[in-house]
């Protein structure tokens, strides 16, 4: 299967400045042959949704290590829906306590990856769960 056309937006919502994980994951996607757009830091949910639409991505991978995930993830999902981009696969990574995972999934995140997550598994999960092009 060629991944060359799968497009991923790696995004840093909120004021959180911890970008090591986001960059490592972005590079893992790129090495796996996906096209990666990295937003850089300090993006509002609106800015992320706008970038996802403008860049026509299949996946939005949100990296949050500030503890603000329960506020920010639903916001991003809502903004995407408002723009008609509800088929974008939403993934969340960062410092996420186990008990918050159900709430994030309920809000629309397909996968949640914590510290120590395996890069190859993240890529495999992404490709297996694409919504726009199917697996």
């Amino acid at each position: 299967m060629s991944h060359a056309k799968v497009r991923v937006l790696v995004a840093k919502p909120g004021l959180d400045s911890h970008d090591r994980g986001a960059k490592v994951v972005a590079r893992a996607y790129r090495d796996a042959g996906l096209e990666v757009v990295y937003t850089g830091l300090h993006q509002t949910p609106e800015e992320i949704a706008e970038a996802a639409v403008q860049e026509d991505v299949d996946v939005a991978a949100l990296s949050i290590l500030s503890g603000a995930h329960l506020t920010l993830v639903p916001e991003v999902v809502n903004r995407l829906r408002a723009k008609g981009a509800d088929d974008v696969l939403i993934l969340v990574g960062g410092i996420i306590p186990d008990e918050d995972v159900p709430a994030l999934k309920e809000a629309g995140a397909a996968g949640v990856f914590g510290p120590g997550a395996n890069l190859d598994e993240i890529v495999e999960f992404t490709l297996a769960n694409l919504r726009r092009r199917g697996a």
Binding site: G14, L15, D16, S17, H42, T44, S66, G67, A68, L70, T71, L72
Partner: peptide, 17 residues
Amino acid sequence: FPTLLGYDSDHERSRGE
């Protein structure tokens, strides 16, 4: 984070942080 970035707690960007 809002303090580190010079935003008051009531700034729009501070929500959730």
